[in-house]
Amino acid sequence: MDLLALTDFNLVARHGGFGRAARAAGRPKATLSRRVADLEAALSLRLFERGGRMLKLTEEGRALHERTGALLTELDETAASIAAGGGRPRGPLRISAPLVFSQTAMGRLAASFALQYPEVRFEVTTEDRAVDMVEEGYDLVIRVNPASDESLVGRAFLHDRLVVVASPDVPRSTDDRAVPAVVRDRIGGSASWDVTAQAGRTRIAIEPVLRLSSLIMVRDAVRAGVGAARLPISLVSHDLSTGRLVHWGDVEGSQIALWALYPSRRLLSTRVSAFLDHLKAAFPTGTPEELAAYVSG
């Protein structure tokens, strides 16, 4: 079996198409197509179902990908480690990160990384949408509670949770009357919040008075006393400790995980590895309290 053809087959299978695989590897699409065709001929098997713009693994192709992908990854990582010879990361590193994390933590992270690795050309783009890493040329993305994606791997490096907070001047309703609220929901969002506090589980009826697109704006509005809001504990921890805001309870089922994602371990560059280690060093335990201390620091 041609090892190079098998490698190209796994590259195409991992990225879900010849075009995406070609862009990710910087290889001609025609070369990848020919290599996969040669492999199919050598095995007398059809590995992909080809139809229009769609490309789907056959049952045999899926089995081959599952059984050989990990082996090729291990070989590639071993060779890369030997070739690197302990060299320092250099070259471009493009990262996409969510808005709130970028506004509160990414500036310091980027600066300390740049000081540690001056030969890396570091670029951070702030956006909450699910970017296409291959199509848009990102090396790594940071996302909140990302949906499962077979084409991406990564790790959760931070955790947070939502709490309901308000200014001490905002009275909490003692009956079923709605309290003024600042929300990120669009029109037609939830009319109540389920929270857990010292008194137990309760439901807070709300009447949105402001709808804002940024959690930073929501926090500033709550500080001004316009109403209550659901916010990450890391974003309001300092306000709670000083009494500027009051904790009404934890939002049920609101665990938040920040993930660092990249297309493949096989394509993991020394630059991405260095940044993942940088995240681990900045947040060794990954707790909400650790993030809050980093944000307030």
Results as ranks from 00 to 15, higher is better:
11 L>H: 00
218 V>K: 00
275 F>R: 02
122 F>V: 08
106 M>C: 12
207 E>F: 05
124 V>E: 03
290 E>I: 10
288 P>R: 03
227 G>N: 02
220 D>F: 00
8 D>S: 10
200 G>A: 12
174 T>C: 05
91 G>D: 00
248 W>S: 07
207 E>Q: 14
250 D>T: 14
279 L>M: 06
168 P>T: 11
187 I>Y: 01
250 D>F: 02
145 N>Q: 11
68 T>C: 08
283 F>K: 05
254 S>Q: 05
14 R>E: 04
100 V>Y: 00
103 Q>L: 07
173 S>P: 09
260 A>V: 03
109 L>I: 06
80 A>T: 09
47 L>V: 08
205 A>L: 09
160 D>W: 08
83 A>H: 12
105 A>G: 10
160 D>Y: 03
179 V>L: 13
7 T>L: 12
31 T>E: 07
260 A>P: 07
262 Y>R: 06
246 V>C: 05
294 Y>C: 03
231 L>I: 13
296 S>Q: 03
38 D>V: 05
279 L>S: 02
208 P>C: 05
272 V>Y: 06
224 A>M: 07
135 E>S: 11
110 A>D: 10
96 S>Y: 05
206 I>L: 14
244 R>K: 14
162 L>H: 02
116 Q>P: 07
214 S>N: 10
24 A>E: 09
250 D>K: 12
83 A>V: 07
206 I>E: 04
127 E>T: 15
200 G>Y: 11
165 V>M: 05
75 L>P: 05
132 D>R: 13
107 G>D: 13
24 A>D: 02
158 L>W: 04
281 A>N: 08
202 T>D: 12
294 Y>L: 05
282 A>D: 07
229 A>N: 01
239 D>M: 10
123 E>Y: 06
109 L>G: 03
243 G>M: 07
205 A>K: 00
17 G>Q: 10
235 L>S: 08
128 D>T: 09
153 V>I: 10
220 D>M: 12
141 V>W: 00
115 L>R: 13
75 L>W: 11
142 I>Y: 01
216 I>R: 15
105 A>R: 00
260 A>G: 08
190 S>W: 01
252 E>T: 15
201 R>K: 15
283 F>E: 00
111 A>V: 09
253 G>W: 03
149 D>Q: 09
246 V>D: 03
246 V>P: 00
275 F>N: 00
177 R>W: 06
143 R>S: 11
129 R>D: 13
277 D>A: 15
130 A>H: 12
78 T>R: 15
288 P>E: 01
41 A>V: 08
210 L>E: 15
128 D>H: 11
159 H>N: 06
295 V>N: 00
85 G>F: 04
35 R>G: 01
30 A>I: 06
84 A>K: 02
32 L>E: 06
123 E>L: 13
130 A>N: 11
211 R>K: 12
170 V>F: 08
182 V>C: 06
232 P>R: 03
196 T>E: 14
236 V>S: 04
274 A>F: 02
237 S>M: 13
256 I>W: 01
68 T>H: 05
96 S>E: 09
221 A>L: 05
290 E>S: 12
109 L>M: 08
292 A>G: 11
69 G>C: 08
90 R>V: 03
129 R>Q: 13
229 A>E: 01
87 G>M: 07
34 R>W: 02
248 W>H: 14
238 H>R: 10
297 G>V: 02
110 A>M: 13
154 G>D: 10
37 A>Q: 13
27 R>Q: 13
201 R>W: 09
258 L>H: 15
232 P>F: 02
286 G>P: 11
